[in-house]
Amino acid sequence: RDEDEKEKIKEALKRGNEDKAKEIAKRANVSPEEYERLRKEAE
């Protein structure tokens, strides 16, 4: 379940949809550090 959320965040970031990614991260309680890591992976 947690991994699904992280995949959704990465997908949103790949599409350049940072607002959606942040919204998912907030809902999934993803830490800022984890969010940054996902953002780097998505580049």
Rank of each mutant, 00 (worst) to 15 (best):
R1D: 15
R1M: 14
R1H: 15
R1V: 15
D2Q: 14
D2C: 11
E3P: 11
E3K: 13
E3H: 13
D4K: 10
D4I: 12
D4C: 10
D4N: 12
D4P: 09
E5A: 15
E5I: 15
E5C: 08
E5L: 15
K6I: 14
K6H: 14
E7A: 13
K8A: 15
K8Q: 14
I9G: 02
I9H: 01
I9Y: 01
K10H: 02
K10V: 06
K10G: 00
K10W: 01
K10P: 00
E11Q: 07
E11K: 05
E11G: 07
A12H: 13
A12E: 13
A12F: 06
A12M: 09
L13I: 14
K14I: 13
R15H: 15
R15T: 14
G16H: 07
G16R: 04
G16N: 06
N17W: 13
N17A: 11
N17P: 03
E18K: 07
D19K: 12
D19T: 12
D19N: 11
D19S: 11
K20V: 14
K20Y: 14
A21T: 01
A21W: 01
K22T: 08
K22G: 06
K22N: 07
E23P: 01
E23D: 10
E23Y: 00
I24T: 04
I24G: 02
A25K: 02
A25Y: 00
K26Q: 13
R27K: 13
R27I: 10
R27D: 08
A28H: 11
A28Y: 05
A28T: 08
V30I: 15
S31K: 06
S31M: 06
S31H: 06
S31C: 05
P32R: 10
P32T: 11
P32G: 10
P32A: 13
P32N: 12
E33W: 00
E34W: 02
E34F: 00
E34K: 00
Y35M: 11
Y35D: 03
E36N: 04
E36H: 02
E36I: 02
R37H: 08
R37T: 08
R37V: 07
L38Q: 01
R39E: 09
K40I: 12
K40P: 02
K40L: 10
E41Q: 10
E41G: 05
E41M: 09
E41C: 05
E41R: 05
E41V: 06
E41I: 08
A42H: 04
E43N: 09
E43V: 11
E43P: 04
E43A: 12
E43M: 14
